[in-house]
Design a binder for these strands. Structure first.
Lengths: 146, 146
DNA sequence: CAAATTAATGTGTATATACACGTATTTGCT
DNA sequence: AGCAAATACGTGTATATACACATTAATTTG
């Protein structure tokens, strides 16, 4: 076997992987708890945001939720197909307004108690203090790029 | 407009969304820094893990990296196509062994300095103490489901 | 040894994420 | 008015993630 130069066998753990892993685990936990509602956590949050307003333009919603505009567009599709959300034209004929349907509202109400459970479980698991500290760091990280 | 029952207008911030958002931000940061290498952070980590061993069975690698087995399978494909990784049959004719190619090793070495930079930036941004505290919480969260 | 289990993988399907492009409108400026 | 720049969106493409199934090979059992 030929000898290879520069083998960086040891290294510190990658912070990016660590947060991605934790994110996956937390996501899976929430998904499991939310499962009876038929909603993914992303979908839940989308409905949740729509519930706060009469209707909202796509890009405004994306900005509010701090997700990519095109990701929002894609994430909306299953909800549209399921009839939980509708889209109407805005005054500005470029913009489109998303809004919750009755079914969407019902689904949200239905999911709320489950979400509460997941939320509470997590708070219980980490403890108030550690969770608060974590959230603080997370909010710092969120603006890492800007 | 018809009156809707139970409008949960106010709620605590969703911990799941928070960590997902932070995860996205950190990922985008690493991706941007790694960009010149042509590797995504997921791909970097895959190569990094393969660099530690001669060859390794799929499921073992997945377990080591703590990612879903099928996700690993999919994530491997771009690397196979790019010729950075190859797969050979294992002794057990069910299992398949993944291994780094020379090109894969080169790509890894090339990306290492970039990754170091991203890693250092993050440490600088949060500070050693806060980062350590964060990592501790993240590792707890990672085993939330088991 | 034959049958039932378990183990190791791959694929179908669906969602999530985001960059690069392309399109249609609106605004702002001359 | 006319045109350039900025806005608001959607889509193509590629990767990431993971559950449900299907397949094949090795193991354990009766």
């Amino acid at each position: 076997m030929k000898d290879r130069p520069s083998k960086p066998k040891f290294s510190s753990p990658c912070h990016c992987l660590n947060i991605r892993r934790a994110s996956r685990a937390v996501t899976q936990f929430y998904e499991k708890v939310l499962e009876p509602s038929g909603l993914k956590v992303t979908q839940y949050s989308l409905l949740r945001n729509l519930e706060l307003v009469e209707s909202v333009a796509m890009s405004v919603l994306a900005k509010t939720m701090r997700i990519d505009r095109t990701t929002l567009n894609r994430n909306l599709k299953p909800l549209l197909k399921a009839g939980l959300v509708t889209v109407k034209a805005g005054e500005d004929s470029r913009s489109r307004q998303a809004m919750l349907t009755e079914a969407g509202h019902d689904a949200l109400v239905n999911a709320l108690v489950l979400w509460d459970r997941a939320q509470a479980s997590l708070e219980d698991y980490l403890g108030k203090a550690e969770l608060a500290s974590l959230e603080k760091s997370l909010s710092k990280l969120e603006v890492l790029l800007l």
